[in-house]
Measured scan of single mutants.
Amino acid sequence: SQVHIGNTTFTFDNPEKAQKYAEKYAKKKGLTVQKNGDVWTVE
């Protein structure tokens, strides 16, 4: 599972961890999370 934030990609061994990280980061920065398969993009 991966989380894309700008030009940075974070890889997680667990989809739940990836989703939590993406949502927490997005909330903190006032951004949105797009999910595509097991990839979350914060923008």
Rank of each mutant, 00 (worst) to 15 (best):
Q34L: 11
E23A: 05
A22K: 01
V39W: 06
T32Y: 04
Q19I: 05
G6K: 11
D13E: 10
D13F: 06
V39Q: 08
A26G: 05
G6V: 06
K17W: 10
N7W: 12
P15V: 07
K35C: 13
Q2T: 12
E16M: 10
H4T: 09
V33F: 05
K20E: 14
T8R: 15
F10N: 03
K27I: 05
F10V: 12
Q19D: 02
T32M: 08
K29Q: 09
A18V: 00
E16H: 08
S1V: 14
E43Q: 12
K35T: 04
T8K: 14
V39N: 11
E16P: 00
V42S: 02
L31H: 06
Y21S: 01
Y25K: 02
T41M: 09
S1A: 13
K35F: 12
T41G: 01
V33L: 08
Y25I: 13
T8P: 04
V33G: 00
L31I: 07
N7P: 05
A18I: 01
P15E: 11
F10C: 15
V3K: 03
S1E: 03
T8L: 15
N14R: 04
D38I: 05
F10H: 11
T41N: 06
Q19H: 07
Q19F: 08
G6F: 12
G6T: 05
K28T: 10
H4F: 08
V33I: 10
K20A: 13
G30I: 01
K29F: 15
T32H: 08
V42F: 08
K29H: 15
Y21Q: 02
W40Q: 01
N7V: 07
T41H: 10
Q19L: 08
T11F: 15
T9C: 15
Y21M: 08
V33H: 00
E23Y: 08
A22M: 04
H4P: 02
E23W: 04
G30T: 02
K24M: 14
E43M: 13
V39A: 08
D13T: 08
K29S: 08
N14H: 08
T11L: 13
E43Y: 13
G37C: 07
K20D: 12
A22R: 01
K20R: 13
W40V: 01
F10T: 06
K20N: 10
F10R: 11
D38W: 07
V39K: 07
V42M: 04
Q34F: 12
L31S: 02
A26T: 03
Y25T: 04
N36D: 11
D38E: 10
V3P: 01
V3C: 04
E43A: 12
G30W: 03
K24G: 11
K20S: 11
H4I: 15
T9S: 08
S1Q: 07
H4D: 05
V42I: 11
W40D: 00
K24H: 13
G6W: 11
Q19W: 08
W40E: 02
N14G: 07
Q2K: 14
N7G: 10
V3M: 02
K20G: 05
A26Y: 03
N14D: 14
T32L: 08
G37F: 02
Q34M: 12
V33C: 00
G37S: 01
E23F: 06
K29I: 08
D13S: 10
E43G: 14
F10G: 04
K28V: 12
K29D: 05
I5Y: 03
F10K: 09
T11H: 14
P15G: 04
D13P: 12
G37Y: 02
V3A: 02
V39T: 12
G6Q: 07
Q34Y: 12
G30D: 03
Y21G: 01
A26P: 01
F10A: 05
H4G: 01
N36V: 14
Q34E: 08
N7L: 08
T32F: 06
T9I: 15
I5G: 00
A22D: 01
T41L: 11
F12Y: 04
F12W: 03
G6S: 07
G37H: 02
F12N: 02
Q34V: 14
V42Q: 01
L31C: 12
V3Y: 00
T32S: 09
I5T: 02
Y25V: 12
K27N: 09
T41K: 06
K24C: 15
T9Y: 15
K28Y: 10
D38G: 07
N36A: 09
E16I: 11
Q2S: 08
L31Q: 02
T41Q: 06
V42A: 01
V3S: 02
G30F: 04
K17V: 12
Q2W: 12
K35I: 05
F12L: 03
A18Q: 00
